[in-house]
């Protein structure tokens, strides 16, 4: 399922016609084995579409950061290839890296530099001409303009996180990697960060983020990839993923407590609450409700009446846990 939709089309919200997706990053058969013998990536293949927000999920040590680090040029791949904007990351590393901005997971900064000096340095490092106007706009957008002369060590954690984003955007990249962008930040800052990412996407930047916060992926991503033990076990549109793998739960609050599930209802695999006042039926969303009708008919036939009902749908987190659990 990893490449099944790569040449496909995606329907944008509000768009009547499906537009063909352009690939901006093409990863093919990527393997990485570290000197210790640890195999961090096992033949990973993946295409990232231009302009999308792609969330890479996976438990610790799954290979997320290794994958990002190889694409960005920080780690050498053992085998396989990566093209960014059509440029091979080894043969055409200058052109490929010029397109990429990276926000690392750790708050790694030059503590003694000023905000302005460090973003100017980052822009220069990527070979871009000086542009005080662009950097000013960038710092204003990230609420750092007032602190432009401050030493980085005097900034709060949230400001440092925003500064790392400013550094990554200083050379106007087309692709932005955010490695755990909201790790350790408060709720308000997370919301601000999500808004910023959406703004960047609207300006045409492709965003690849790794996250431990499933709700973050659920909130923002267009597509989701799940990596586990160095293998990309799934790449799917978020909505399709939810539709395919999501489970719904129907909870019925009964008029009379049920001492036990009657044998006639065994086929529905109902769960009974400890006091018998509720029964829960779990079904997948592709069942289109057929199972519910049958259940309700069987309940009626068994003379079981209910006074209220409630449905819930699995979150991405539950889907993710199920997927990774299967891999273990």
């Amino acid at each position: 399922m990893t490449r099944n939709d790569q040449q496909g089309a995606r329907r944008r919200p509000g768009s009547a016609i499906a537009a063909p997706m352009q690939t901006i990053i093409a990863v093919s058969g990527l393997c990485k084995t570290y000197a210790s013998g640890f195999q961090a990536l096992k033949s990973v293949s993946l295409d990232i579409h231009q302009g999308e927000i792609f969330a890479l999920l996976g438990p610790n040590g799954a290979g997320k950061t290794t994958l990002i680090s190889i694409i960005c040029g920080i780690v050498q791949a053992t085998s396989g290839s990566v093209r960014v904007g059509g440029h091979d990351i080894v043969a055409g590393y200058r052109a490929a890296r010029s397109l990429i901005g990276l926000v690392p997971q750790e708050l790694t900064t030059d503590a003694f530099e000023s905000v302005w000096a460090t973003v100017s340095f980052s822009r220069g490092l990527f070979g871009r001409r000086e542009s005080p106007q662009y950097l000013e706009k960038l710092l204003r957008d990230l609420s750092l303009w007032e602190r432009r002369e401050s030493r980085i060590r005097t900034l709060s954690g949230g400001m440092k996180r925003r500064l790392l984003i400013a550094k990554a955007l200083s050379h106007e990249p087309q692709v932005l990697f955010l490695d755990e962008p909201t790790a350790g930040v408060d709720v308000n800052l997370r919301r601000d960060m999500w808004q910023l990412v959406r703004t960047l996407q609207a300006s045409g930047v492709t965003i690849i983020l790794t996250t431990h916060y499933i709700d973050e992926a659920e909130e923002m991503a267009d597509r989701i990839g799940v990596i586990s033990k160095g293998e990309l076990i799934l790449v799917e549109e978020k909505a399709e993923l939810m539709r395919q793998l999501g489970r719904k739960r129907l909870t019925l609050q009964l008029q009379q407590p049920l001492p036990a599930i009657p044998p006639a209802l065994a086929a529905h695999r109902l769960e009974r609450s400890h006091d018998g006042s509720e029964i829960t039926y779990t079904y997948d969303t592709q069942g289109e409700g057929g199972g519910i009708l049958a259940l309700l008919e069987d309940l009626s036939a068994a003379g079981i009446a209910f006074r209220d009902l409630q449905t819930t749908q699995s979150s991405l987190e539950e889907i993710f846990v199920d997927l990774v659990k299967d891999e273990r």
Binding site: G73, L102, P104, T108, T109, D110
Partner: peptide, 16 residues
């Protein structure tokens, strides 16, 4: 120093 602080990532990911 960049290796120690981790800011080496920026050098290695730059088109240099």
């Amino acid at each position: 120093f960049p290796r120690f602080t981790g800011t080496i990532y920026e050098l290695l990911s730059a088109p240099l």
